[in-house]
C-alpha cells in the first residue's frame, strides 16, 4: 500500500525541490531569504542545512539581477529554481522573465533553451495592498515560450513542481500565500504530475466551474451552496495554464452545457476571457448560455479587510454567476 501522509503545501513544495536537488546537482535554489532565513514563508526551511550555501543561495533584493543570473546560468546547463518572495516583485524583473527566459530558444534559433523555474506567492495575501497583491497569471500567460502551473493542493504542488524542475522550458509556478499552510495527503513514494492536465475536483451534471489555484476553493464553497438549490456543479481544477487542458473543459461542458470561469486576475484580456473564447469556439452548439466569468473586481487591491474580501472572485459571486447562467435550464 502506498504510504500517504498529511503535509502542508509549503512542505510539499520543499520536498519537490529537495528531491530534485538530491538527484540532479545542476539544480539549485536562489532568491531573497531562501537560505539563512529559511524562506520568507518557510518554504525552503532546512534546505540550507542539507544542501549548503552553494546550492541554497540568498540573493540581494535585486529581482532583475538574480532572475537574469538564473537565466544566464541555464545557457551553461544549470537548472535554477528562482524564488520570488512574491510574484508582485517579479514586475521589476519583467524584462528578464518575459524578454529573455521565454524567447532565448527562439532568438538563438534553437541553440539555447532555458530550463528554469520561477516560483513564489501570487494573488491577494492578507491585506497587503495593491502593490503586493498581484495576480500575474493573465499578464504572463500571454507570453509564448513559457509554461505556467498554478497548483491548488499539496499533492499537485509537489508533483507539478517536480515536473517543472525537469522541464526543458521556463516554468512559472504560482503559489498562493493563503494556501501554504493547508494540509493534504501526499504519498511517500516519488511521483510527478504532467504539466498541462486538468483534474475534476467535484463531479457534477449541471454547470462546469473552471478554476485554478485558490479559486478552486471558492468554487467548492459555491458548489456546496448551489447543491442545496439542486444545482450540481462540476469543478475543474486546471492546474496548468500553459499548456491549458482545453479538452478537459470541452468534455465537461458538452456534458453540463453551462460554463462559469473563475479567475482571480482582472477580467480584461485575461485567462478567464481566453477560456471563454475557446469554449465558445469549441462548444458553440453545446452551450445553453454564454460562458460567464467571475474575476477579481476591476480595481487595485484595497487594504481594508472587508473591501479586499469583496474584491476576490468569492463564492457568492460564483453562485450568482451560476444562477444567472443556468436560469434557463
Amino acid at each position: 500500500m502506498p504510504m500517504a501522509r498529511e503535509i502542508e503545501f509549503r512542505e510539499a513544495l520543499r520536498e519537490a525541490m529537495s528531491e530534485e536537488m538530491r538527484s540532479d546537482p545542476r539544480v539549485f535554489l536562489m532568491g531573497e531569504e531562501v537560505a539563512q532565513y529559511h524562506g520568507a514563508y518557510k518554504v525552503s526551511k532546512g534546505m540550507l542545512e542539507e544542501f549548503g550555501p552553494r546550492r541554497i543561495i540568498d540573493t540581494p533584493i535585486s529581482e532583475s539581477g538574480f532572475a537574469g543570473m538564473g537565466i544566464g546560468a541555464t545557457m551553461l546547463g544549470l537548472r535554477p529554481i528562482v524564488e520570488f518572495m512574491s510574484w508582485s516583485f517579479s514586475l521589476v524583473a519583467a524584462d528578464q522573465i518575459m524578454n529573455n527566459a521565454p524567447k532565448i530558444l527562439y532568438m538563438s534559433g534553437g541553440q539555447f533553451g532555458c530550463p528554469i523555474v520561477f516560483r513564489g506567492n501570487d494573488g491577494a495575501g492578507g491585506q497587503l495592498g495593491s502593490t503586493h497583491s498581484w495576480c500575474v497569471e493573465s499578464l504572463y500567460a500571454n507570453v509564448p515560450g513559457l509554461k505556467m502551473i498554478i497548483p491548488s493542493d499539496p499533492y499537485d504542488a509537489k508533483g507539478l513542481l517536480k515536473s517543472a524542475i525537469r522541464d526543458e522550458n521556463p516554468v512559472f509556478c504560482l503559489e498562493s500565500e493563503r494556501l501554504l499552510s493547508i494540509k493534504g495527503d501526499v504519498p511517500e513514494e516519488e511521483y510527478v504530475i504532467p504539466i498541462g492536465e486538468a483534474v475534476i475536483r467535484r463531479p457534477g451534471t449541471d454547470c462546469t466551474l473552471v478554476g485554478f489555484g485558490r479559486t478552486v476553493y471558492f468554487c467548492e464553497q459555491a458548489a456546496e451552496e448551489l447543491a442545496k438549490e439542486g444545482i450540481e456543479c462540476e469543478i475543474l481544477d486546471m492546474r496548468s495554464i500553459r499548456p491549458l487542458d482545453l479538452d478537459a473543459i470541452v468534455t465537461s461542458v458538452r456534458k453540463t452545457n453551462y460554463c462559469v470561469v473563475v479567475d482571480q486576475s482582472w477580467s480584461f484580456a485575461s485567462i478567464g476571457s481566453e477560456v471563454a473564447a475557446e469554449v465558445h469556439k469549441a462548444c458553440f452548439d453545446d452551450l445553453d448560455n454564454h460562458v460567464h466569468r467571475v474575476h477579481n473586481d476591476d480595481v487595485p487591491a484595497p487594504y481594508s479587510h472587508d473591501l479586499e474580501q469583496e474584491m476576490l472572485p468569492h463564492a457568492r459571486k460564483i453562485c450568482e454567476a451560476v444562477r444567472s447562467a443556468t436560469y434557463n435550464a
Binding site: 539581477g65 537574469g68 543570473m69 544566464g72 546560468a73 541555464t74 545557457m75 551553461l76 528578464q96 524578454n99
Partner: peptide, 12 residues
C-alpha cells in the same frame, strides 16, 4: 539586459 545573463554565465 545581457549583464545579469553574463553574471549567470560566470556563476555557472
Amino acid at each position: 539586459a545581457q549583464c545579469p545573463l553574463g553574471t549567470g554565465l560566470a556563476f555557472a
